[in-house]
């Protein structure tokens, strides 16, 4: 059945100046040169004239150099190991149910003192989409998005399944992120 014909406005009507073509080429080359020349001069000054402190370029020499990660960055989710050496997680299962790709599975257990802990906590890194909903759902600040972004892919998917040992990170190393999630705006507006 033939559909209705719709005229589409592709918005390619060029102005007279644009139709001239040459001025636009020059404008593009100007932007390229504006970025290229300072970098070029900077590199020459830094490595040929041996004045590295004067380098003003945007790129870095990864992996020798590491970028500064902003605190809101969501890297690999990790479990927080409290100062008493025990995991903070109480196996409430809220991250499990919040996780959109269902990459978390927890089996809870109970300690002799009556507190609860995850007997097994498995996070399938090959499924994780780094959305951070687990961190948001967690009532205990027990799972946070770390700033770890390296070596997260493997040729074997089996190697990307993290168990509790691979996930637990001491609280001291995650201070920055923990402070960030405490002051996060959206954690206040709901309550």
């Amino acid at each position: 059945m033939p559909g209705k014909t719709v005229k589409v406005d592709r918005n390619i009507t060029l102005t007279f100046w644009e139709k001239l073509y040459i001025p636009e080429i020059i404008r593009g080359l100007y932007i390229t040169t504006k970025h290229f020349l300072p970098n070029f001069v900077s590199v020459v000054r830094a490595y040929i004239l041996n004045k590295p402190e004067e380098r003003k370029i945007m790129t870095i020499y990864y992996p020798e150099e590491k970028p500064n990660i902003p605190e809101a960055y969501r890297g690999r989710p990790v479990l927080v190991r409290g100062e008493d050496g025990k995991e903070k997680c109480v196996a409430c299962g809220l991250c499990e149910v919040a996780c959109p790709p269902h990459c978390i599975s927890i089996v809870g257990a109970i300690r002799k003192d009556g507190t609860r802990y995850p007997e097994t906590y498995v996070l399938d890194g090959s499924r994780c989409i780094f959305c951070g909903l687990c961190e948001e759902a967690c009532p205990e600040e027990a799972i946070v998005m770390s700033h770890n972004y390296e070596n997260l892919t493997e040729l074997d998917r089996g190697l990307m399944i993290y168990d509790k040992d691979a996930l637990l990170v001491p609280e001291a190393k995650l201070k920055e992120r923990l402070e960030f999630i405490r002051k996060r705006a959206y954690s206040k507006c709901n309550y």
Partner: peptide, 9 residues
């Protein structure tokens, strides 16, 4: 009898 799970699971 402790059960390892939450009601929604």
């Amino acid at each position: 009898m402790y059960f390892s799970g939450r009601s929604w699971e």
